[in-house]
Structure formats: structure tokens, C-alpha cells
Design a protein around this nucleic acid. Structure first.
Length: 489
RNA sequence: GGCGCGUUCGUCUAGGGGUUUAGGACGCCGGCCUCUCACGCCGGUAACACGGGUUCGAAUCCCGUACGCGCUGCCA
């Protein structure tokens, strides 16, 4: 039984945005922690100075906040094992690297990047596995110290055992065995003094008391290096769980170029956090029931690492769209209006008339998948000119009954005060009784005259939104420009 | 090339030897609702990579092959 001391972390590199794969990793860590009443920690892995992106961390945290995955310890909220930013823990890594060298588990390496690159090329050419050739591994401690003192640039490398095997019992994959001989002498400290991921994450996971390392499958091959490090330090190895990858439609690792990968992209297009969370939770995990819709609370209750699938999962935008549309339709009216109005505004439409905007949104929201779709769906309400271009609409226009309906409607319109829903119904009923025209032949002419389209929101809603004057103007306009041949018009 | 991981409908998946004519969801197709579209509801389409074992019996266990993906960086 897992106690309430579970501590897990989401440890992203601040490269500019939150990747959806990262979101899934964060979610699973979060769910695991919450399910067991443990702690969810955010740690920023900013050890690559060449990849520094200004504002990346702030953006990452802002986006994480949007998802609702609150962390218990990390930048901004603090915690007993901070700092939670690796660039602020440099001394700790340096001290531990020194310890490794002193105890014979690592060594200084003076090989230049150029030499390393040439060596790799040669190995590839000879069809040998590209690995460090061990040149500096053979250096005596004294010689290494001298060269170091002389100011020669150096890195620290892990002295990987050349024999034996390293075994890990992964929660998701079971037993995985690696031959130590094929594991490279990984660089632990770069020549700029910064640690690499391997050293920093092991040191931090230990001092931050991480009990379960839950991360992407791409890390599985470096597990033996990490275990070696834990052993060298004499530390307990945390439980490991390597998540299946998120894939592009062509089954390669999810990346840009094949669609949006930044959570920010999805926010911008009008996806709801609950939809994205629900969707991403089902990528590689399911509770074994036929439930598809989950609140965060339900996910927390039902989540378990044991039910995570082993194979990679394609990020299927169609299912996300369905889920998002579902969540939009579930939104209470006030939230629906608040959520969609900005998208109308962004499309350049005038939303100053709150009541009209509300009616428009209510008329079209059922047919959209995401926020930005509202612009296209609501367009007919904002175009001042009725343009009839669809062949089907033109065909309808040519029907003799169309003219009859529109002209009769206009006559009756002029006899009433206002045009509320009730009045509209009465008028339609009268036209039907007087002319004998009904169903499609009766309603479609109105729809086309008002919107120029054969598809759209329910007609009563359209009438209500336009109001008497605009309805009159549109019908008159269509009669004058599209049906102008009749002298009676 | 080496090492590792994986392989059930197009996609996400259920399934732990017989209860399976392999279930659900998205998509797609058809129907109903309806002035139209959408929503909603109903129905349909579609899969155990291949080959050997083990077993009375395999999608489920074992081995192999193929294919896919990941890693192979002083990136994470």
C-alpha cells in the first residue's frame, strides 16, 4: 500500500511553452499525487543556457495554472525542499559531481567537442555504436587535476561499469534489463559548469524526496545511468513509471510541423481546460469502464499507474473536438456567453449590444467544437448584405412560391406593430392558410432571404435577433435585387 | 548500426485461457427529429501484425519474424 507520503514532480524544461505531452505527464503526476493524498511538485529544469528563452518559465506556469493542475511545491509557492529552479541549485550539483570524482564514480574529461564529433563520425562510418572512447577515463587523477588547474576546459563524465547489467522494475513496463557495456559514459557536468539533466534530476529527486518518477518513455534508455548514480551516492532509487509517448497521426513522436503541440495554441483556438484534461487523460489511460466524460475529481478517484497502456497514443484532434464541443454545450449560460464573446470580438464583430450578442451565441453555439468556430457560425448575423450564392438557394429562389411567400410576408409585416416570436408564428400560419404553401416551400424562402443560406440557426431565433426593421429590409432587398423582374414588386 | 519499448476497428481503448457472433468512444455511413444545419436519439461499418509452439481450448501464455517508435548530444 502506498502511504500518504507520495511525492512526485513535473520537471519541464522552460523552452517557451507547455507541450501537450508535458501536460499529459503533469496530469498523470498530479492525479497520482492527489489520488494518494501526496504532493505534486513543479521543478524547473533550466540547465541549458544555450536554450534560454526569456519569459518561458512565467508562460509555462501561467499555462499550467489555466489547466487547474495546482502544485504543492515549486516556483512561486515555495516549499521545504527548494529552490525549485535548477539554475539556483548549481552549488549542490557541483558538490556532488566533485564527490563522484573523488570516490571514483566519475572522471574529468578534456576531450573537445570537435574531437568527440570526429570520433562519432568515424564510429558511425565503421558501423560501430557511437560511444565515448574512454580516452580521459584512463587519465590518472593527478594528470587530470593538473590539466584542470592549467585552465583546460573539461566536463565530468559518469564512470559507467563496463560489465554486468542494470535492472529496473518499471511500474508500467515491468522488468527492463540493460547491459552496462552498451551504456555510455554520460556527461554529468558541462564545460560551462552546469549539470546535465541526468545529474541534476537524480540529485534533485533525492533531495526533494521524490518517491515516484513518472515521465515520458523517451527517458527509459537513460535509466541505467540514473540507477548507477543513485548507487554511487548510496541513495535509494525511486519507483519508476515510463509513460507511453504521444504520437503524430503518422505515429512519430508528437511534434510541431504536424499540428499544434503547445497548450497555448489550444487555449487560443478556444478549447476548454476540462476538455483538454479529459482528452489527454484518456491518452494511454482508462479506468476499464465505459465512461468517457470525467471531471478532474473523478479522474483523481479512478486513476492508477497500473492501468496505463504501454503503447504510444496518437493525438486524435477529432475526439478532442467532440469532447470540447460537448463541454461547451454543457456550459451554464453565463459562462457560455463569457467564454464565446471574446471570439466574436476577435473576429471583428461588434459585441457592444450585450443582449443581441447573447442571442446570437445562444442561436449557434450548439454547432461548434471550439471557441474560434463561433466567428464563422455567427457570421450571417453580422454581414449587412445578403448574398445568395449556393446553387440550392438559387434554385429555391426561382420557385414561384418563393415570391409569393416573401411578398405576403412583407404585406403582413407592415400590418403588425412589432415582430416578436408569437407574431412571427401567427404570420407564418396565416401565409400557410392563405396560400396553401407549407413546410420547406414556406420556410426556406424566408431563411434564404434573411441569411442568403440554406443552412443555419432556427428561423424564429434569426427573426428575433434581426428584429422587424432588419427583417423587412432584408426581404425587400432580396425581392428588389434577386426577384426584380416582376413589376408588382 | 547498437540498445530499449511497443503491436486489438482509421483513431483512443476494453479484454489477463473458455462468459466473445471480440465490448465502448471518436470518425464515417444510414435513419428519426426538423424549414435547413447543428444538437439529441436510434442503427450500421470496421480490428486481435505474421509464423511457430504450450493447451482439450489462445486476442489472452512462450519463442521467433516483421513492422513501428524511442534513445544513441557538453538538449531535456
Amino acid at each position: 500500500m502506498i502511504s500518504d507520503k507520495v511525492r512526485v514532480r513535473f520537471a519541464p524544461s522552460p523552452t517557451g511553452y507547455l507541450h501537450v505531452g508535458g501536460l499529459r505527464t503533469a496530469l498523470f503526476n498530479f492525479l497520482f499525487a492527489r489520488h494518494h493524498g501526496g504532493y505534486f511538485i513543479l521543478r524547473i529544469e533550466d540547465t541549458d543556457r544555450t536554450r534560454y528563452v526569456p519569459g518561458a518559465e512565467e508562460n509555462l506556469i501561467k499555462t499550467l495554472r489555466w489547466t487547474g493542475l495546482d502544485y504543492d511545491e515549486g516556483p512561486g509557492v515555495g516549499g521545504p525542499y527548494g529552490p525549485y529552479r535548477q539554475s539556483q541549485r548549481l552549488d549542490l550539483y557541483a558538490e556532488h559531481a566533485r564527490r563522484l570524482v573523488e570516490e571514483g564514480h566519475a572522471y574529468y574529461c578534456f576531450c573537445t567537442p570537435e574531437r568527440l564529433e570526429a570520433m562519432r563520425q568515424e564510429q558511425i562510418r565503421r558501423k560501430e555504436p557511437p560511444m565515448y572512447d574512454g580516452t580521459c577515463r584512463k587519465l590518472s587523477r593527478q594528470e587530470a587535476e593538473e590539466r584542470k588547474k592549467a585552465g583546460e576546459p573539461y566536463v565530468v563524465r559518469l564512470k559507467m561499469p563496463r560489465t554486468g547489467e542494470t535492472v529496473v522494475e518499471d511500474i508500467i513496463r515491468g522488468k527492463v534489463v540493460f547491459q552496462n557495456a552498451v551504456v555510455d559514459d554520460q556527461v554529468l557536468v558541462k564545460s560551462d559548469g552546469y549539470p546535465t539533466y541526468h545529474l541534476a534530476s537524480v540529485v534533485d529527486d533525492h533531495y526533494m524526496r521524490i518517491t515516484h518518477v513518472i515521465r515520458g518513455e523517451e527517458w527509459l534508455p537513460s535509466v541505467p545511468k540514473h540507477i548507477q548514480l543513485y548507487r554511487a551516492f548510496g541513495w535509494e532509487v525511486p519507483q519508476m513509471a515510463h509513460l507511453p509517448l504521444l504520437l503524430n497521426p503518422d505515429r512519430s513522436k508528437l511534434s510541431k510541423r504536424q499540428g499544434d503541440v503547445a497548450v497555448e495554441d489550444y487555449i487560443r483556438k478556444g478549447y476548454l481546460p476540462q476538455a483538454l484534461i479529459n482528452f489527454v487523460a484518456l491518452l494511454g489511460w482508462n479506468p476499464g469502464t465505459e465512461q468517457e466524460i470525467f471531471t478532474l475529481e473523478e479522474l483523481i478517484q479512478q486513476f492508477s499507474l497500473e492501468r496505463i497502456h504501454k503503447a504510444g497514443a496518437v493525438f486524435d484532434i477529432q475526439k478532442l473536438n467532440w469532447l470540447n464541443g460537448y463541454y461547451i454545450r454543457q456550459l451554464p449560460e453565463d459562462q457560455l456567453i463569457a467564454f464565446l464573446t471574446p471570439f466574436l470580438e476577435r473576429a471583428g464583430y461588434d459585441v457592444s449590444d450585450r443582449e443581441k450578442t447573447r442571442k446570437i451565441i445562444l442561436a449557434v453555439y450548439k454547432g461548434i467544437d471550439k471557441g474560434e468556430d463561433i466567428a464563422e457560425a455567427a457570421r450571417l448575423f453580422y454581414d449587412s448584405e445578403v448574398k445568395i450564392e449556393e446553387p440550392e438557394a438559387r434554385e429555391m429562389l426561382a420557385q414561384p412560391s418563393t415570391r409569393t411567400v416573401l411578398e405576403t410576408f412583407l404585406q403582413k409585416l407592415d400590418q403588425v406593430e412589432g415582430l416578436d416570436l408569437e407574431t412571427f408564428k401567427v404570420i407564418m400560419k396565416e401565409i400557410q392558410q392563405e396560400t396553401g404553401i407549407k413546410k420547406k416551400a414556406l420556410w426556406m424562402p424566408l431563411r434564404i432571404a434573411l441569411t442568403g443560406l440554406t443552412h443555419g440557426p432556427e428561423l424564429p431565433l434569426v427573426i428575433d435577433i434581426f428584429g422587424k426593421a432588419e427583417v423587412r429590409r432584408r426581404i425587400k432587398y432580396v425581392l428588389d435585387t434577386y426577384l426584380a423582374s416582376n413589376p408588382e414588386a
